[in-house]
C-alpha cells in the first residue's frame, strides 16, 4: 500500500494510455482542476477527450472525483457554492465557461441522468413533456405527444406505459423510473448524455435493459457514464478512463484497458486487488 501511495505522487501527473484524440472530439478537457472550499482539491490536472457517438466509461474507487468531473461537463457544480472549476472544458470546440454560453443552454444540449432515479412527482407524460415545454421546442400539443412517444420509445418504456401515461412517474418500478429519467433527458434532444452511476440502484435485469438502451442511444448521442461496475464498463463502453484520488491514471480503448493496462494502479484496480 505504501508503494502505491509513493507511486501516485511521482507518476500520476501524467496520464497513461491515449487520453487525447486527434479527430471526432465531442468533449475535451485540458488541465482541469476542481476545488471545494478554496483549498480542498478534488480533481488534479485532468486532460482527456471524449469522442462523438461513443460511450466513455469513467471508473475508479469511491471518492476519486469521477462524479465531480462528470458534473463539470454541464456545469452542475455551479450550484455548489465555493466549488471552483479551473481549466478548459470544450464542447464542440467551444469553452463551456465562456460568456457566450449560458448554463441553461449548455444543460439543454448536455443532458444528465442521475444515480438515483428522480422522476418529478407528476404524471409520466408530464415528466417527459417538461423539458420540451420548458424550452419551447413544440408548437402544439400533437407535436408534444409525438416527442413524448418518441422519447419513451427510445427509452424502451413506451410499450409498458402507453396506456397509463397519466399515472404518477413515481409509481413505476426503480428500473422503469430510471428509463423514464432517460426518456425525459432525451426528450430535449441533447447532444451529450451524462450518466452518473445510472444502474447502481437497480437489479441486474433492469441494469441489462438500461445497458442495452445505452448501446442503442450511442448512435445518436455521445454518452459519458460513471460506473462502479467494471463489468459494466467492459460491456458497454468504447473507451474507459480510470481515476484515482482525483487524478486521471489511464485512458484507452476499453479492450486495451481491461486486457493490457499500462499503469500498475489500473491493473490493481481491474484485477480487484484494491478499490
Amino acid at each position: 500500500m505504501k508503494d502505491i501511495k509513493q507511486n501516485l505522487t511521482q507518476e500520476l501527473d501524467q496520464t497513461s494510455g491515449n487520453p487525447l484524440l486527434e479527430e471526432n472530439i465531442k468533449i475535451s478537457c485540458r488541465k482541469v482542476n476542481v476545488y471545494y472550499h478554496k483549498n480542498v482539491q478534488s480533481i488534479f490536472n485532468v486532460s482527456f477527450d471524449i469522442a462523438k457517438n461513443q460511450i466513455m466509461a469513467m471508473i475508479g474507487p469511491s471518492g476519486c472525483g469521477k462524479s465531480t468531473l462528470l458534473r463539470c461537463f454541464n456545469r452542475m457544480n455551479d450550484m455548489i457554492e465555493e466549488c471552483v472549476v479551473d481549466g478548459d472544458i470544450k464542447l464542440d470546440g467551444e469553452n463551456i465557461h465562456s460568456k457566450n454560453i449560458d448554463p441553461v443552454i449548455l444543460r439543454a444540449s448536455v443532458g444528465m441522468v442521475f444515480q438515483k432515479p428522480n422522476p418529478f412527482p407528476k404524471s409520466i407524460y408530464d415528466n417527459v413533456a417538461y423539458g420540451p415545454k420548458l424550452h419551447g421546442l413544440v408548437r402544439n400539443s400533437s407535436e408534444l405527444d409525438d416527442i413524448v412517444e418518441e422519447s419513451l420509445t427510445k427509452a424502451g418504456l413506451w410499450k409498458e406505459t402507453k396506456d397509463c401515461l397519466s399515472k404518477a412517474g413515481t409509481s413505476l418500478s426503480g428500473g422503469q423510473q430510471q428509463r423514464l429519467c432517460i426518456a425525459r433527458t432525451i426528450a430535449i434532444k441533447p447532444e451529450v448524455i451524462l450518466m452518473d452511476e445510472p444502474t447502481s440502484a437497480l437489479d441486474p435485469i433492469a441494469t441489462a435493459t438500461i445497458e442495452e438502451l445505452m448501446y442503442e442511444l450511442k448512435s445518436s448521442y455521445t454518452i459519458a457514464v460513471v460506473t462502479h461496475s467494471m463489468q459494466q464498463a467492459a460491456r458497454i463502453s468504447d473507451r474507459t478512463a480510470y481515476f484515482h484520488l482525483g487524478r486521471l491514471v489511464e485512458v484507452n480503448d476499453t479492450n486495451t484497458v481491461f486486457t493490457n493496462p499500462v499503469h500498475e494502479l489500473t491493473e490493481n484496480y481491474i484485477t480487484g486487488r484494491f478499490g
Binding site: 444543460r107 439543454a108 443532458g111 444528465m112 428522480n118 417538461y130 424550452h135
Partner: peptide, 15 residues
C-alpha cells in the same frame, strides 16, 4: 424538498 428534484430540473436546463 428533495435535492434530487432540483437537480433533475436543473439538469434539464430549467433556470
Amino acid at each position: 424538498v428533495p435535492p434530487s428534484i432540483r437537480e433533475a430540473a436543473l439538469g434539464l436546463g430549467a433556470s
